[in-house]
Design a protein around this nucleic acid. Sequence first.
DNA 1: AAGGTCTCCTGAGGGC
DNA 2: TGCCCTCAGGAGACCT
Length: 282
Amino acid sequence: MPELPEVEVVRRGLDDHLVGRTLGGVEVLNLRAVRRHVAGPADFTALLLGRTVTAARRRGKYLWFALDDGDAVIAHLGMSGQFRVGSTVDSPHLRVRFSFHDDGPEVHFVDQRTFGGLAYSHGGAELPPEIAHIAQDPLEETFDLGAAIARLRAKNTGLKRALLDQTVVSGIGNIYADEALWRAKLHYARATATMTKSQAATVITEASIVMREALLAGGTSFDALYVSVNGESGYFDRSLNAYGQAGKPCPRCGTPIVREAFMNRSSSRCPACQPRPRNAHA
DNA sequence: AAGGTCTCCTGAGGGC
DNA sequence: TGCCCTCAGGAGACCT
């Protein structure tokens, strides 16, 4: 479940169902699920047996579980990854199953498209070095808005491209980029280098607000691929103003939302509220 | 440095 | 019913 609110829903579920438990079994059913772990699945499993999970953490779209020896397991859900608590042994997409010394339910990593995956991080309990290049996300308590504004304005690119760049601000994907742009009344091709600090602050703040609202709604779920550890869907899809709304009237001005190809994916905007700027980039 | 293109996969849905 | 095409919330590699 790709973007920040959906990943945070998963992290909270893992906080409830994984933290404090000691691993008794790790079974890798699909090699691609641990392809980032270069030492291989047997090494991955051996490193984990007997370890106790001490925390479930997140930055942007990355999750990691801190272990009692200071190491961690990094997880990225990719396009279709899920963590589920028990009851998914019949899924053809079950990739890694974790069992524990206690009598509680197994925790399963399920991933249809296998773009997601797990890896062991030596010394990564606080912040895995493998993801140190990812910028802070807007929901972190120490998020530095001023620094994020500076990184955005230092880019010589189009605004949506910069919002999707996880080294500028992390956690934003295609849905929340489109929603933040709609809220800020800005076009995806707005040149970042010519934006004022105020405009940059506005769009980043709108991204932060829309992701917080989505989190309160349990995330955005269009189908069963995007669910919590208990299999529950979020309902923020009802509150989307631009993403996936092509042909429907803009909730602000009534002009039909348009959908355009951009960056090899789709982009939705209101052509009246978010007109293409004369100084558009790319 | 930036951006275009391609790749990794599976499955759903539309058109014919 | 089946087949082919397009699309999907990510991200990293490669090339220019």
